[in-house]
Each structure stands twice: as C-alpha cells, then as structure tokens.
Simulated scan of single mutants.
Amino acid sequence: MTMEYTCNDCQKCAPFDVFKGTCEHSQQRILLDSPVNGCKTFVRKNQCKFCQNYCVKAGTEFVGQCHEKMVYPTMNACEKFQPLR
C-alpha cells in the first residue's frame, strides 16, 4: 500500500482551522492537505491510521476499528500503537 503523506500528517504541523495551519519548522502558513513531497523535516505523527492495529470499518469512510473499538483515523495513537513499516 502506497500512502501519500500530507502536511497534516507531520508532527511539525500546527493546524489553526480545518484547512490551514503553520509549519513550525519554516514558520510559514500551509494548507493541511498539501503533499509533503521532499520535505526534509517531515516527521510522521503517531495517529491511528498509521498503526498496524487499525483497520477501516466496512461501509464507512471516516471511522475504523482498533481492538474492537471504533476510532477515527486521525486520533492520537494509544499505548498499543504499532507503527506501519
């Protein structure tokens, strides 16, 4: 599975609304959905969607399952987080 990361997937992204944020490294305004193509300071957030235990719930776009619980893909990861390789 190939995944394209966005600025919103980076630990250095500080969102201030649903569309925009600030890159804490460059101190520039960014669009959260901008691809990180070649960003040398990108550090992936530990979110549910990047965990081996997360799976997409059938018939839904914005909800998944982890250990029998419904979770959102962008939730901060729990203590059972196992990063994707």
Rank of each mutant, 00 (worst) to 15 (best):
V43W: 04
V43N: 06
V43K: 10
R44I: 07
R44W: 00
K45Q: 11
K45D: 00
K45E: 02
N46C: 03
N46K: 12
N46P: 00
Q47H: 04
Q47C: 00
Q47D: 01
Q47P: 00
C48W: 07
C48F: 08
C48I: 06
C48N: 09
K49D: 00
K49T: 00
K49H: 05
F50W: 10
F50H: 10
F50R: 00
F50E: 01
F50P: 01
C51D: 06
C51K: 05
C51N: 03
C51S: 07
C51M: 08
Q52V: 03
Q52W: 02
Q52C: 06
Q52G: 02
Q52T: 06
Q52P: 00
N53Y: 12
N53H: 14
N53L: 09
N53T: 03
Y54D: 03
C55M: 12
C55Y: 13
C55E: 15
V56G: 03
V56Y: 07
K57A: 11
A58G: 07
A58V: 06
G59R: 07
G59T: 08
G59D: 09
G59V: 10
T60K: 13
T60F: 15
T60N: 08
E61P: 01
E61N: 10
F62Q: 12
F62E: 09
F62S: 12
F62R: 06
F62A: 09
F62Y: 14
F62M: 09
V63C: 04
V63L: 12
V63M: 11
V63Q: 12
V63Y: 13
V63W: 14
V63R: 12
G64S: 07
G64F: 14
G64P: 06
G64L: 05
G64V: 05
G64M: 02
G64A: 05
Q65D: 06
Q65F: 02
Q65T: 11
C66N: 08
C66F: 14
C66H: 10
C66R: 09
C66M: 11
H67N: 15
H67M: 14
H67E: 14
H67Y: 15
H67F: 15
E68H: 15
E68A: 13
K69I: 04
K69L: 12
K69C: 06
K69Y: 11
K69V: 04
M70T: 08
M70Q: 13
M70I: 10
V71F: 08
V71K: 10
V71S: 05
V71P: 06
V71N: 07
V71Y: 12
V71I: 15
Y72E: 09
Y72H: 12
Y72D: 04
Y72A: 11
Y72I: 02
P73R: 02
P73K: 10
P73I: 06
P73D: 12
T74Y: 14
T74I: 02
T74D: 15
T74E: 13
T74M: 15
M75E: 15
M75G: 04
M75V: 03
M75T: 03
M75Q: 08
M75W: 14
M75C: 05
N76V: 10
N76S: 10
N76F: 09
